[in-house]
Write a protein that binds this DNA or RNA. Sequence first.
DNA 1: GTCTATAAAGCGATAGAC
DNA 2: GTCTATCGCTTTATAGAC
Lengths: 193, 193
Amino acid sequence: MSKAVSGRADILPDLGEVFRAHGYEGTTLALITDATGLGKGSLYHFFPGGKEQMAAEVLAHIDAWFTEHIYAPLRDADDPGAGIVAMFDAVDAYFRSGRRVCLVGVMALGASRDSFAAQVKDYFAAWIDALAAALRRRGDSNAMARRKAEQTVLEIQGALVLSRALDDLKVFARALAAARARLNEKEGAVSEG
Amino acid sequence: MSKAVSGRADILPDLGEVFRAHGYEGTTLALITDATGLGKGSLYHFFPGGKEQMAAEVLAHIDAWFTEHIYAPLRDADDPGAGIVAMFDAVDAYFRSGRRVCLVGVMALGASRDSFAAQVKDYFAAWIDALAAALRRRGDSNAMARRKAEQTVLEIQGALVLSRALDDLKVFARALAAARARLNEKEGAVSEG
DNA sequence: GTCTATAAAGCGATAGAC
DNA sequence: GTCTATCGCTTTATAGAC
């Protein structure tokens, strides 16, 4: 599919879909050309660092999206509960109810993790921090907030894996609904470890 | 590292570690030669179907291991609770407390899933079925058993992703302990979805 | 069964015309 | 900025000697 793009930032979403679908190693310049309509000349003009730079910028783009649409509301919303509700809605929309996979999770599992370890780590650490901050503001202790936040992010990742493995979107829907409900309970929603 | 191997079944574990570490697309015959000590001649003698056959046989080998060490005890142990305890011990040992990644999960996320979709699906479906059977035998309703089983498998996968992303084995340990404890509770351990 | 040699294709990346 | 042509290398896979 070819597409009229003007700036290089415009192609980052398309680029992201290619990496998402094929992984870092599985992504080739030919696939990127197919998805973006840009030849090698243009691609190397925009990204002199080649494939590695493309992936790094895609990860940065994703991180910026999550910061704006998920982490910031979790931290800054007047009502922390509203930030949490907004997070689940945004997660469901972003991952298309389980149709879309988490590129950062894919990178974390693959060998490419070594090259992007810092970005992968920061993404998940920031997510857990932001969610824990909201839970703390809502009344949880520091330790309890962190435990619940870690468990919630973990479940979202597991839901994406299992939903795709079983080819069953209902798995993702159930897991997201369960995590949402659990965060609305008052006590000990996440068992001791 | 070279290694004296006689039969082709002997190299499946080494082969599995290569796929685990590099993913399907990232695995090359050169890497396999390094890990097994076998040249292309031997590799194609054992696996005429090449890389795809190697991956398929590795997945079958993993499935056989889980069937014997995890699914069978869950289904057949006199005490279903003992089968569940044994499952968590085996999972912790198999994934080396989070150091090792789940190859089937890696395959599920990647583009290679298309080629191995049936094997990936069967692995997770069998796991959930076996765990649900144990929970049912222990007194849970059919629906509750299935919900808890799905949630538990999902959390193990999520723990592997997050533990590796954060490069923190304690994440895996906490998640496994929490899932273990939750299955020992009597009521509503998994929230409604 | 294992080796070396090699084929044929695809890879990331570069150069230079326009 | 985009194109074509091309380099140098790696890839999967095969052939044939031993």
